[in-house]
Amino acid sequence: MDYINGETIAIVLFFIGVWGLIARRNVMKTIISIGIMQTAVILYYISGNYIPESVPPIEEIPVDAVVADPLPQALMITEIVIGAGITAASLVMFIHVYHKYGTSNWLKLKK
């Protein structure tokens, strides 16, 4: 079962999110799908360069230890913050749209 690892699952999750964007007409579900895609990307970064039994690069590191790569974590902290901001912004806009049009269906919004 080697192929069930973080990366493959991340790619699969990503395209589940894409499927949600294509097939669901509800704006709310679109925002949720974007959330799924964000999670998939985060999972990919975190598990992509993972080396088993590596140690965190903090303080004293044993001479023969394998050090984990800190960059993906740092990048993903940023992405989590941005993701939260984007989701909040799109939810606020969705509330406005819903008040103006009274529907959450993309096709009816387009008229």
Binding site: V27, T30, I31, A89, S90, M93, H96, L109, K110
Partner: peptide, 10 residues
């Protein structure tokens, strides 16, 4: 404009 805005964002 609100429709255009949310479409652009997403």
């Amino acid at each position: 404009a609100i429709y255009d805005g949310i479409l652009y964002l997403l």
